[in-house]
Design a binder for these strands. Structure first.
Lengths: 274, 274
DNA sequence: AAGCTGAGGTTCAAATAATGAACCAGTAAG
DNA sequence: CTTACTGGTTCATTATTTGAACCTCAGCTT
C-alpha cells in the first residue's frame, strides 16, 4: 500500500468519524499503527489538511480542503451551478435530492437538497457511495464503455441489502435498462427502505461528470413514482448540462455512447490503476 | 522530504497553476521527477483529489476536496457563517474583504467579498498568504504566544516588497502594535500599492481560528482610512465570534492572551514540526 | 516517407523513507 | 500507591520511493 494511499485513507477515516477523535481512536478506526497514524497526522497538519486542538489534543479535518474546493469550484463550478436545479427537482418530486461527482472508485456527494417531508431520506453531504449499489452509481456506470466497466466488475460486488445486484449479469441488466430509459433506479439496493432514481450529468463529450438523484422512503415511493422521478431527474440533468456546457449541440446521443466507441486514443489507458 | 509532503506540494502546485496542465508542466512546476510526479498523480486520482481528462490527458484538481470541505464546513461552519459579516464589512468600508484560516504555516483564503469599485483589489479565493508580510498574517501572529512564534521567527522572512518587515525586531514591533490596537495593518508589505487592515477571529479559548481583512488600492486608501478599516474589521471579528461560539463570556481578554500563559499543558508541543 | 521533436508513460537497481514493538510520561479512577 | 488508560517517541528492520534511461505515439519539417 502506497504512503499516499494510506494518507488518503486516514483522511477519509477522519472524515467519516462522528466527532473529534483522539490519536488512538483514529489509529483503531484506520487500522494503522499508532506511530504511523501520528506521523501522518502531523504531516497532514503541516499542510492544513488536519488540525489538532492543542488543548484537548483531538484531531479534526483542516481548512486546506476548503481552499482546494474553492479553487476547484472556481475552475469547474459543478456544485454551485447544480444547486438551483437540485432545488427545482425537490420542488417537483417532493423528495430529497443529492448530486454526486466521481471520486476515485466511488461517487462523492457534493450537494444535498432536503425534502420538506418530516419523514424523508437524510443524506449526509460528503457521503461516499458505491457504484454498483446506488441509483447514482448505476447511472454513472451506465455511461461508461466496456473497458472502463472492467475495473468495477473485477472487484467483488458487496451486498448491502438483499436487493443489491451482486452478479455481473444482474448489473449488466440494470445498466442496459438505465441506458434505455435514461435513468437508473435502486429499490433499497444500498439501504433497505430507500427508493431512488438517478440520472447522469454528461459533459460535452458524453462523459459522466456527475449524477443527480431523488431518494424517498419506500412507504411513500413505489415503483411507478420512482419511474416518474427518474424521468424528472433525467430532464433536470439535461438542463444542468445546458447550464454547464452551453446550448451548442454535440454529436453524441443522449446516453453518452460516443467517446469510447469512436475516439479510443491508444491502447494504453491514460490512468492505469494496477 | 516525506512522501506526504511531496504529495501535498503537488496538490498545491496543481492548485496554483492557471489552467489544466500536462504531466511535464506539473513535473517542472513542482520540481519533481516526471516519473514521481505521474505516480503521485495516479495515486491521488485514485482518491479523487486529482482528475485527468482522458482525452487531452491533462490534469486538474478533483472533487474529493469538495467532499472534505463539505464535511469540514458542516462540523465547523467557518466560511459559511463568516460570509454575511464579510459582506457587511464590504458595505461599511467599500473595499474588498477576505477571510482566511490557518493552514500549516500560512493562511488560506477561504472567502472573498469583492468591492464594488471598478478599481479594486482582487483576491483569488484559495490564495495562500505568508504570515509575516500580510495584514491577515500579522493579525494571526499577534495572537500567538512566544513559543508558537518561534517557528515563524526561525524561518527566513522573505521580502516581497520594500515595505515587508524582514527583521524579527520590526516584526515584533508590528505585532505589539497589533495587540495594542486589536488589528494589524500592512501598507504594501505583500504587494506594492495594496493597503490592508486585518483582525483575528478568536475562539472561546482565545486562539485565532481565522482572520478577516479589508484591502484597498493605495490610491484611495491612506493610513487614516486604514486605521478606520482596522477598527471596523476588529468590530466585525467580535460579531463573528459571537455568531460562532455564542454570546457567553469567557475569561480571556480581547486579544486572546490567555491559553499559552495559563494552560501550557506540558513541555512537549502537541504537534512538533521538526 | 523519413527524420525530428516532444509529449505521456514505464522500468528496475539504488537510495531513501516508512514501519511498529517497546518505550516514556501524564492523568484519572479505584 | 496501583492500575489502566491516554498521547507521544525511538531506532533497528523493512518496504517503498526514486530517477536516468527507456519506450511509444502524434504532430511537425524536410
Amino acid at each position: 500500500m502506497s504512503t499516499i494511499a494510506k494518507a488518503m485513507h486516514l483522511l477519509n477515516t477522519l472524515a467519516d468519524m462522528r466527532m473529534e477523535p483522539g490519536l488512538t481512536d483514529i489509529a483503531t478506526a484506520s487500522g494503522m499503527d499508532k506511530a504511523t497514524t501520528r506521523r501522518m497526522l502531523v504531516e497532514l497538519s503541516r499542510f492544513g489538511f488536519v488540525e489538532q486542538d492543542l488543548l484537548t489534543r483531538r484531531y479534526r479535518l483542516g481548512s486546506a480542503p476548503v481552499r482546494l474546493a474553492r479553487i476547484r469550484e472556481q475552475r469547474y463550478p459543478f456544485a454551485s451551478i447544480v444547486a438551483p436545479f437540485a432545488r427545482e427537482l425537490v420542488a417537483t418530486t417532493g423528495e430529497t435530492v443529492h448530486v454526486s461527482e466521481p471520486a476515485g472508485d466511488r461517487l462523492a456527494t457534493v450537494h444535498v437538497e432536503m425534502s420538506d417531508y418530516t419523514h424523508r431520506v437524510i443524506i449526509d453531504p460528503g457521503q461516499l457511495l458505491p457504484l454498483h449499489a446506488t441509483a447514482s452509481g448505476l447511472a454513472y456506470l451506465s455511461t461508461l464503455g466496456p473497458a472502463e466497466l472492467e475495473a468495477t466488475f473485477a472487484t467483488p460486488l458487496t451486498a448491502f441489502t438483499a436487493a443489491t445486484a451482486t452478479s455481473t449479469d444482474q448489473l449488466r441488466e440494470r445498466l442496459n435498462e438505465g441506458r434505455r430509459l435514461g435513468y437508473c433506479i435502486s429499490e433499497g439496493g444500498y439501504e433497505a427502505g430507500v427508493m431512488s432514481a438517478a440520472a447522469a450529468i454528461l459533459d460535452a463529450k458524453g462523459r459522466a461528470r456527475g449524477t443527480i438523484a431523488v431518494a424517498g422512503p419506500a412507504m411513500r415511493v413505489d415503483r411507478a413514482k420512482l419511474e416518474e422521478f427518474g424521468a424528472h431527474a433525467a430532464e433536470i440533468a439535461r438542463s444542468i448540462e445546458r447550464a454547464l456546457w452551453g446550448t451548442q449541440k454535440t454529436g453524441q446521443d443522449r446516453h453518452g455512447r460516443t467517446e469510447w466507441m469512436t475516439a479510443e486514443r491508444s491502447k494504453t489507458r491514460a490512468i492505469s490503476q494496477s
